[in-house]
Amino acid sequence: MIHIHFIVNPIAGHGNAPLTHEELQSYFIKGVHDLTIKVTEYKAHATALTKASIVEKADIIVACGGDGTINEVATCLIGTDIALGIVPMGSGNGLASNLKIPKNRRKALEIIRNRHAEHIDVGNINGRYFFSNTGVGFDASLIKNYESSEKRTLLGYISACAITFKNIKKNTPLSIGIDGEAPLLNPFIILISNSNEMGYKLSLTPKASLQDGLLDVLIVKKIGRLKMLWLGFLILIRKVHWLKESRSFQTKKISLKCEQSDFFDTQVDGEHNRIDDNHLTISLMEKSLRVLTAK
């Protein structure tokens, strides 16, 4: 018997199409697959439910939601033999898209039923794991504003972008040092990626790979508003390297230090995360998560 546990975020994707046991049963074989559905009720509940499923000897644990839900579930499975399944039900679905897991529910469930697994790299930022990307600067502020909005849609994302853009000059000046280099004053973006998508098919690091053993780093120095608009266009066409104020490189580890503050505002897999430390250490754990993917 193959024990498959589904951890479902009921409000992902506006909560319009809840996953039911009856629907799941039509894709799996009675007597072969034992199915369990667990529904989250609050933030971080997916972590608790996943830990319980591990104790209950689940063979596969499926995250049904967006990148935040996937992060909570996957974090518990690092270094184990339990496979992570994904049913993308969020708004951005960056990691699922990078793994070629379709948003079409039937096709996503077929991938879980087929049980083809691969191992992917995992990022670590001060002890917290990320699977897609993490960053400071504009994208962290953008996610903070997006989370405070009631619109978890592309329109809401664009609205949050406009608010972040408007408030840039109000932000406290920051000087950030990167691995001992001369500090950057108010860098626009410092993004560290494990995957090549951020959600909504957008990408700042289109050459990043989940299986190459390297993190892709994008640094954009302080830029004016016109350059910000130009950068927005370059993101849409995946040509960020055309911006002369940008720099990209690959590494296994990077450190950031902020002199003016005792904390960092970051985004981790598309969720705002305040880290109460003025020093960030970001590294990679190679092939440490087993994920079900299409062949």
Rank of each mutant, 00 (worst) to 15 (best):
N71L: 09
A48W: 10
I143P: 12
D34G: 01
G13R: 03
T266Y: 02
K100F: 10
L284P: 10
V8C: 09
N9M: 01
V217M: 11
M228Y: 11
T281Y: 01
R290L: 15
I11P: 03
A294Y: 06
L231H: 07
K103T: 14
T266S: 07
K170P: 02
G177F: 12
F131V: 04
G180H: 03
H33C: 13
S159A: 11
L99Q: 13
T205H: 04
L49H: 05
N71G: 05
N71P: 10
A294L: 07
L218G: 00
L210D: 07
R128H: 14
T47E: 04
A108N: 03
T75E: 08
D212C: 09
S283L: 12
K295I: 08
P187N: 06
M198A: 12
K170D: 14
S141P: 05
L229Y: 08
A162C: 14
A46L: 13
R247I: 08
V217R: 02
L202T: 08
L142V: 12
L226I: 14
L191H: 06
K100D: 12
D121A: 13
I37D: 09
S255M: 10
L215H: 00
I275H: 00
T153L: 01
P183K: 05
L229F: 11
P187H: 09
D276A: 01
I120A: 03
R105C: 08
M1S: 14
P10K: 03
L155C: 01
S209I: 06
F233D: 00
I235Y: 04
G232K: 08
S149Q: 03
G13W: 04
V136E: 02
S193K: 06
D179N: 05
L284Q: 00
T205W: 05
I37T: 05
C76I: 09
K253G: 07
H45G: 01
G127L: 11
D262A: 02
S209N: 13
V136W: 13
I54R: 04
I223P: 13
V240Y: 07
F249H: 04
A48C: 06
D262R: 11
A48L: 15
V32W: 06
I2Q: 07
H3G: 02
D265M: 06
L234Q: 10
I168P: 01
V291L: 00
G224N: 15
K103Q: 15
A182L: 11
S132R: 01
E245M: 05
S203C: 12
K252M: 13
L84H: 12
H33E: 13
L24Q: 05
N196G: 01
I190R: 02
L284C: 02
G94W: 08
Y42C: 15
M285L: 08
G135N: 02
I190P: 07
I192K: 01
A52Y: 10
S132F: 04
I60P: 13
I54D: 03
G79I: 07
P88W: 00
S141T: 08
L284A: 04
E22S: 13
G199T: 01
I189S: 00
E22L: 14
N278Q: 14
T251A: 03
K43E: 15
P206L: 02
S203K: 05
G68L: 07
K257A: 13
F138D: 13
K239Y: 14
K38Y: 14
G65M: 05
L234C: 13
K287L: 04
I163E: 12
N104C: 12
I78R: 03
I86R: 00
S97N: 10
T75H: 08
I254K: 00
L77W: 08
T75S: 15
H119V: 13
G232T: 11
L215G: 01
V55E: 12
G92V: 04
